[in-house]
Nucleic acid binder design. Structure first.
Lengths: 195, 195
DNA sequence: TCCCTCATGTAAAAGGTTACATGATTTA
DNA sequence: TAAATCATGTAACCTTTTACATGAGGGA
């Protein structure tokens, strides 16, 4: 089984969905850290069904094409449950911007600070969106997050990391940009005297 | 050009290396957020050379096989410099453990807390290693990080994010584990009375 | 003798993205 | 009339991982 398969099972364990709906959900990464496109999702659903982990029923619609609504089976739920706690290696994270930072010393500081300011902004915006969701949960729920056997706790846990991640990332971008801007200002003050 | 190509150029811009040495470096991700295997690196070096971005010379060794030492060309340096500040989409991060957390509500809390404690430990260990490197830099350098046109600043910037990332991640794992353990303790106190 | 490191590659398979393909309905 | 949404798929391509392949030298 692939990770994508478990991602789909994770959604279907909460509620039945069509392939199209699953694809919509996975445009923005579920749990904030996994995404996929419809071209990958449709074949994967077929594989899951072949393994008896999901079923589908055709739902007729007026004014829209029919859809196939997928439901998780008890076997699918078991497979998902086992996967959640199975041993796992620490995966290496991949991030292009950080890789670029590794060669930042070669770049023009002004151009570079622009790039990092742009990314700072994007991550701040994402952070605000996540914080708004958290705010809503806080208002509605209160102590509800304590129930670790409810999907709401799981969602809240991933949201909490998402917030921490965006906060860390945006602050790092800002710090890098500030360093670049300070260096640039210093260069302008003393055009050709250093150390 | 692929991102891997720029990753290799980023290393070669600092110092010439053989394919084998590059592969060693990229076992642990460079800039803490990009890794690759030798099977990907050797063909990529050939492509870079075909594009005139790197050159190699054969270096004979006693007691070891000959090696091809690659050097970045002025064209390679230019390509790298331009890439660093080029516009870039925010890439979606991928993380299996966080995806698992999304289905945590299905799992056995004891088994799950074990998984999260294991990952907490691993990230704490990584954090300690990074902090040790940072400590060394602080002692040796002092104000050296200010020079944004030195490779040391770039390395320091990526290290800073690496530390923040490991701290965030390990604390999140601990928090999740604590929630699971508290719920488990509560269940033991009152075996079948809730609310 | 067997395994590890050094050193460089290729091949096959898996995972993921982009593009192709179709067709109805609604909104601008 | 054109674009967007709903709905489901396939094909080609690119990237990455795993496995195959070879061979010398050093240490247990």
């Amino acid at each position: 089984m692939t990770i994508l398969g478990y991602a789909l099972l994770g959604l279907l364990a909460r509620e039945p969905f069509s392939g199209y709906e699953l694809a919509q959900k996975m445009k923005a990464p579920i749990s904030f850290f996994w995404h996929a496109k419809h071209s990958q999702i449709y074949p994967e659903l077929a594989k899951l069904e072949a393994q008896g982990l999901v079923n589908h029923e055709r739902v007729e619609q007026q004014e829209h094409p029919d859809k196939k609504v997928y439901t998780i089976t008890p076997a699918g739920r078991d497979a998902l449950r086992q996967w959640v706690t199975a041993p796992m290696e620490v995966p290496h994270a991949r991030d292009e911007l950080i890789l670029r930072a590794y060669s930042l010393w070669l770049a023009d500081p002004q151009e570079a600070s622009l790039l990092f300011r742009t990314h700072e902004q994007r991550h701040v915006e994402q952070l605000r969106r996540y914080e708004a969701v958290q705010q809503k949960i806080m208002e509605e729920a209160g102590a509800l997050q304590q129930q670790v056997d409810s999907p709401d706790f799981s969602s809240y846990a991933t949201l909490a990391l998402g917030i921490g991640y965006e906060r860390l990332y945006s602050e790092w971008c800002r710090w890098v940009a500030e360093q670049l801007e300070q260096a640039d200002a210093t260069t302008l003050e003393k055009p050709s005297s250093s150390g």
